[in-house]
Simulated assay, not measured.
Amino acid sequence: MFKNLIITCFFGVTAIVLGAFGSHALKEILTFDQLQSFETAVRYQIYHAIVLLFVATFDGISAKQKQLVNALFYLGILFFSGSIYVIQLTSIQAKSIWFITPLGGLFLIAGWITMIVLFIKKVNVKL
Rank of each mutant, 00 (worst) to 15 (best):
M1I: 15
F2N: 09
K3R: 15
K3P: 05
L5G: 00
I6P: 01
I6R: 12
I7H: 00
I7S: 11
I7K: 08
T8N: 04
T8L: 08
F11N: 10
V13P: 04
T14W: 06
T14H: 00
T14R: 07
A15D: 10
I16C: 02
V17S: 05
V17A: 03
L18W: 05
L18G: 03
L18T: 05
G22S: 09
G22I: 05
S23R: 05
H24N: 07
A25D: 03
A25N: 11
L26Y: 04
L26G: 01
K27D: 13
K27N: 14
K27L: 04
E28W: 03
T31C: 06
F32R: 14
F32E: 15
Q36T: 10
S37P: 12
F38Y: 15
F38N: 14
F38P: 00
F38W: 07
E39I: 13
T40W: 06
T40F: 13
T40N: 14
T40M: 01
T40D: 00
V42T: 14
V42Q: 07
Y44A: 00
I46K: 01
A49I: 02
A49W: 02
I50D: 02
I50N: 00
V51T: 08
L53A: 12
L53W: 04
L53Q: 08
F54A: 10
V55H: 01
V55P: 05
A56V: 07
D59W: 11
G60H: 07
G60T: 13
I61F: 03
I61T: 08
I61A: 11
I61C: 09
S62C: 11
A63T: 11
A63L: 07
K64E: 15
K64A: 15
Q67C: 11
Q67S: 15
N70P: 04
A71P: 02
F73I: 14
F73T: 08
F73E: 03
F73Y: 12
F73H: 08
Y74Q: 01
L75E: 00
L75P: 08
L75C: 13
L75Q: 03
L78N: 11
F80C: 01
G82T: 10
G82E: 07
G82K: 10
I84P: 00
I84L: 08
I84K: 10
I84G: 10
I84D: 05
Y85Q: 07
V86L: 14
I87Q: 00
I87A: 07
Q88V: 09
L89R: 07
T90R: 11
T90G: 06
T90S: 15
S91R: 09
I92P: 03
I92C: 02
A94E: 11
K95R: 03
K95D: 02
S96C: 01
I97C: 06
I97N: 12
I97L: 10
W98L: 10
F99K: 11
T101V: 14
P102Q: 11
L103F: 04
L103T: 15
G105C: 13
G105E: 09
L106I: 10
F107K: 05
L108W: 01
A110D: 06
A110C: 14
G111T: 00
I113S: 01
M115E: 02
I116Y: 04
V117D: 01
V117N: 14
L118W: 12
L118N: 04
F119I: 11
F119E: 01
I120V: 09
I120K: 15
I120S: 09
I120T: 10
K121D: 13
K121T: 14
K122W: 07
V123E: 08
N124R: 04
V125I: 15
K126V: 13
